[in-house]
């Protein structure tokens, strides 16, 4: 079960980092109607994304210890990054068409 928690946390982390950029902000279905927040919030999102990723590694460490936890972390991170990027590009494309 922990693996799903780690997956969700790292997906959220990557989304935060992505949406900190105005270019990707426009891709989100509902939020795109709002104006992109200012620099402050952008930075805040960037950092919270990083913090979420650190939280994910901490969860892994708690559950599996460093050696095994890092294996899980790296694996989950790969899947999360791939998934989030595909999702964002999917939304960006549907908006353009």
């Amino acid at each position: 079960m922990t693996i799903f928690a780690v997956l969700i946390i790292s997906c959220l982390g990557f989304s935060c980092m992505a949406f900190a950029k105005p270019k990707h902000w426009k891709a989100i279905p509902f939020l795109s109607r709002l104006r992109h927040p200012g620099k402050r919030v952008q930075e805040l999102m960037q950092y919270s994304g990083a913090i979420l990723l650190i939280l994910a590694v901490y969860t892994c460490q708690l559950n599996w210890g460093w050696a095994l936890g890092l294996c899980f972390y790296v694996g989950v991170l790969s899947i999360a990054l791939f998934f989030v990027s595909l999702l964002i590009s999917y939304f960006e494309n549907t908006i353009k068409n």
Binding site: G75, S78, L81, F82, S85, I88, S89, N93
Partner: peptide, 29 residues
């Protein structure tokens, strides 16, 4: 700096993007 850029349905660029995305995502592995 920005690994979320991905331009599908743009012909050749999409293949490059897919190549980059899959390699960056699994780079540590």
């Amino acid at each position: 700096k920005d690994f979320f850029s991905f331009r599908p349905q743009k012909g050749k660029a999409a293949w490059l993007d897919m190549h980059n995305l899959s390699s960056i995502a699994s780079l540590p592995f």
